[in-house]
């Protein structure tokens, strides 16, 4: 109970439309500073993208947000529309998903490869089912309470399987799915915990252009119809520029720009970070086009 009151204070002030407020986040590994005094806000019902060159510390931000690392300094405030304020940096890893309803996916897909597609989605609803089965005790006795809860869980899984076109392959082993389907399944699995904030770590990596477009639709759909805020790490500018409402640019663990896609695209510091200090005409144009490309 002490723990709860620490993680869910009532006197923390955040902007009224904020979903996730990151303040002065700093993460050091020994002598290496991976993130240096980072602050930004992810707003409700918005897609916030974090971009930056390789090694800028993007995944480390995610790992702090979802409890895999304890930040060295900083406050991570999540404003849950129903349950109020949670201070994520004070919560044990798994509780961030369990209580604050923050879900995530991984850069290298982490499914349960030997379990079926459907089972992957049902495991994601573990906490709800655990409650319904009274920590499995009621489940053992074949009471109707558990079987109806399980039916509900299957319905939610069906809903998402239909959305991404995996319904027919629900009984396949997840590890046997093609790469693009595994990416989509991982997003569905994250949605099955009924999150308020969904953190996606490079969801478009390894997808072909057609699949990238489908991903855009899926993510926009999640924002519109589910009302879930999305935090996105992505290198594919066609995805980032197309769907983000708000972009945060990191370089060497520091925030160098923060604003709308339009603003970020024209920000000289961003161009400098991506292109390097010297004006070099050959390589940079490509990257510059890449940066601008998504909007075109």
């Amino acid at each position: 109970m002490v723990f709860q009151s620490l993680a869910r204070p009532t006197d923390v002030k955040v902007p009224s439309d904020a979903l996730m407020e990151v303040e002065h986040l700093t993460m050091r590994f020994g002598g290496l500073t991976a993130i240096d005094d980072l602050s930004f806000t992810a707003r409700k019902k918005e897609i916030t993208a974090i971009i930056g060159p390789n090694g800028a510390g993007k995944t480390t931000v995610f790992n702090c947000l979802t409890g895999f690392y304890k930040p060295t300094v900083g406050r991570l405030t999540l404003v849950h529309p129903q349950k109020g304020i949670h201070l994520l940096e004070r919560m044990e890893g798994f509780r961030i998903a369990q209580q604050a309803n923050v879900a995530r996916t991984f850069q290298n897909i982490r499914l349960f490869p030997q379990m079926t597609v459907l089972e992957n989605l049902i495991v994601a609803q573990h906490n709800a089912l655990m409650k319904a089965s009274a920590f499995s005790l009621a489940g053992l006795t074949f009471l109707p309470r558990y079987s109806s809860a399980e039916k509900e869980a299957v319905e939610l899984a069906k809903y998402w399987l239909n959305k991404v076109g995996l319904y027919d392959r629900a009984d396949w082993e997840a590890g046997n799915l093609p790469y693009g389907d595994q990416r989509r399944l991982e997003i569905c699995r994250a949605m099955c915990i009924r999150p308020v904030l969904l953190c996606l770590d490079e969801p478009a990596a390894g997808l072909n252009p057609r699949e990238s477009l489908q991903l855009n639709d899926l993510l926009l759909g999640i924002r519109e119809s589910e009302g879930v805020g999305i935090l996105l790490i992505e290198h594919d500018m066609s995805v980032v520029m197309e769907i983000s409402d708000h972009i945060v640019v990191l370089d060497h663990g520091r925030k160098i720009s923060d604003g709308t896609p339009e603003f970020v695209r024209n920000d000289p510091t961003v161009i400098k970070a991506y292109l390097g200090e010297e004006e070099d005409e050959e390589l940079p144009t490509e990257v510059a086009q890449d940066l601008a490309g998504g909007a075109a």
């Binding site: 895999f68 890893g93 798994f94 995530r104 991984f106 499914l111 349960f112 379990m115 495991v123 915990i193």
Partner: peptide
């Protein structure tokens, strides 16, 4: 079984390992 397959993924789904 999920834990056997991937503990990190389990934690990200709110399962207390």
């Amino acid at each position: 079984e999920a834990l056997r397959e991937d503990e990190i993924a389990c934690r990200s789904l709110g399962i207390n390992p």
